[in-house]
Amino acid sequence: MNRKIKDGLQYVLIHSAAIICVITLFSILFYILKNGIDYISLDFIFSTYSATNHGGGISTMIMGTIYMVILTLVIAVPISILSAIYLNEYATENKVSALLRFAIDGLVSVPSIVYGLFGFSLFVSTLNEYTGGYSILSGSLTLSIMILPILIKTIEEALITIPNELREASYGVGASKVQTIFRIVLPSCMPSIVTAIILGMGRIVSESAPVLLTAGMVYRMPNSIFDSSRTLTTHLFQLVNEGIGETANQQAFATASVLIIIVVILNVSAKMIANKLIRK
């Protein structure tokens, strides 16, 4: 009997924990969307923010975010694919590859604010002449280094799943190693790579502390990657932190809603691609 009560209590705790997780997520989503969705309009999305009346829309922040996502991916994706190829297709287990893996694990654990400090010190201050100081370029370079280790790890995991028979069959018909990698290995795990990239986009959109320290706070439309720009996250931070203007609160909820919608869409699409993979 005693055992039954103990077991029953554990069952209750286990179920409650899972329910708490689900409730936490849905209360965040519900609370923010409920307060933000009404303020979202085409006008809010497509008009610029105005400093004089602290009102207007978020078009410039959306552009800033898009710039940041594209530039970061352009820098980080090729490097991470090539690195994953090295680690899975070329590296033998020796001290060099152990050191490289140590560095990748080390980078994963560095807090985002430290990436911000690093980006500020190297890209904003030291390389000021080339990056434009606080700029989209400085932000993207910083974020690239930040997402690199995660991209490498997920892409490598995809490469590992490709069976060796495929590679050997390709060598058997006279293909070189490079040909095998580009014609056989990479195409076979393309969906996983796409999933990794989509999740990487989510991380870039979500990041705020390093962006604040490297891309600055200018809310005007960026003309080039050398301009400072706000992203949606840093704009939300600024709205909450300063809270100037009559509609600051509604703007904040609406901006947060837009962010949530983007993040959920990215995750759902990544999930759909991954599910298709499993069904195959």
């Binding site: 936490t24 997520l25 991380r203 959109v205 979500s206 840093t234 939300l236 990215l266 999930k271």
Partner: peptide, 24 residues
């Protein structure tokens, strides 16, 4: 489903957690 909930929790921007915290 619960795993997916956890994935979304991981994906929500930290500034939104802060915003949710200060507002609610």
């Amino acid at each position: 489903f619960v795993l997916f909930v956890i994935e979304i929790l991981a994906a929500i921007p930290s500034v939104i957690y802060g915003f949710f915290g200060i507002k609610l």
